[in-house]
Design a protein around this nucleic acid. Sequence first.
DNA 1: GTCTATATACGGATAGAC
DNA 2: GTCTATCCGTATATAGAC
Lengths: 233, 233
Amino acid sequence: MTFAQFNQAAAISRREIYREIYHEHRLTIKAKKEKTALKNLELIFEATLKISNKKGFSAMTMRDLSAETGLSLGVLYHYFASKEELLDMVQSTGRGITSRILRQALAGESDPAARLRAGIKAHLFLSEAMQPWFYFSYMEARHLGSEEKERTKASELYSEKLFADILKNGQEQGVFKPMDCQNMAAVIKAMLQDWYVKRWKYAKRGQNVDQYASFVVDLVESYCLAGGEPQEK
Amino acid sequence: MTFAQFNQAAAISRREIYREIYHEHRLTIKAKKEKTALKNLELIFEATLKISNKKGFSAMTMRDLSAETGLSLGVLYHYFASKEELLDMVQSTGRGITSRILRQALAGESDPAARLRAGIKAHLFLSEAMQPWFYFSYMEARHLGSEEKERTKASELYSEKLFADILKNGQEQGVFKPMDCQNMAAVIKAMLQDWYVKRWKYAKRGQNVDQYASFVVDLVESYCLAGGEPQEK
DNA sequence: GTCTATATACGGATAGAC
DNA sequence: GTCTATCCGTATATAGAC
């Protein structure tokens, strides 16, 4: 699986994302016409990610957002009750998409080594396709209210557990060597996160996501399969 | 080398840190008596790290800092000209200590495998001893002015290069197998960073820094030293 | 439905009292 | 040397004009 193939298969349509957000918050969003609502939601979210990822969400003012979107302050407040609610909306949308795509990717595979590869690549490719969302989620998690913060931690632990379970399963089947599955899952996540957090570093030396994915898969497999026969792709 | 041994050898005396800061900024700090200056600097920095690491530096108000330190606003401004200068002081102090300790740790070793181990452990142990500083540097780097931001990026690239050079050197000596040294160095750094960024996760399952260090060293060495047949790309 | 003007509060920084 | 009172700017959020 390459990034290009992933993009086609997953069909992360931006329009689809905003339709979801609109219907999820239909009660609080005051705009009535769906067409303008979708257009404005897209403007608002893209601008929020753009500005926040440059100078931080708390440093982004509502006037910044107004200027970037071309929407007035009054209109902005038709889509969320407060700046904090906007933050929560971005975070929960990101979480939802991530867990859905990860589950989808793993559902198609049964062999532990294949599941491990699929999980790593799906996560990397998704974070590549939605880099601003991932970066935002990572950096702004600590500015959330306590309730949303707990949800974010739970989400981190959930995806770590996905990887840990794959590893444990592989061990039980005798495909992977004995190891500390929790730590292995943790460092896999760390490597996946580095791709979207330190994007500038990889861009600087012209590394693309397919190359990085191959490297991570190779490193992880070479550790987990050590002792057994080298595997073919 | 264990964390306990590192702590003794490196002797990261808190008092020493603040003495350094005081002398480095002697010209701008208005407090004259060294003794009270050191005490207040310690109060200010500890409080800044504590508050910022909870809610972010930009969300920390000068009144928060005043309440936490017990110092008045007027006194605080005797130690820095602006809130941004305080940010820069924290960052540059952290950078200085890190690069010094890393260089010291590597200076004692010549064998590539030993150097690799020493670099990984020194970084982990230092970040353990100064976790609030490292967490702060990592999270607040993007809120810096462009000049300080460049310095931070340079520091990131510098320590990555330290690891990449060790790997390349080991390859040339035939100790390490052929590999992508840049990516390997990058993911080593990612694993080191995860330790202090996601501290809560490791604490939750009772993992200590010596255990984590052993795991990372084992993973990295098992990949680099993998003998027999080198892998193809 | 959209925008402009403004209420209200709080931020960083400082001047001057003690 | 230290603290208190305050200036000035700007933040979020809203009410009311068009």
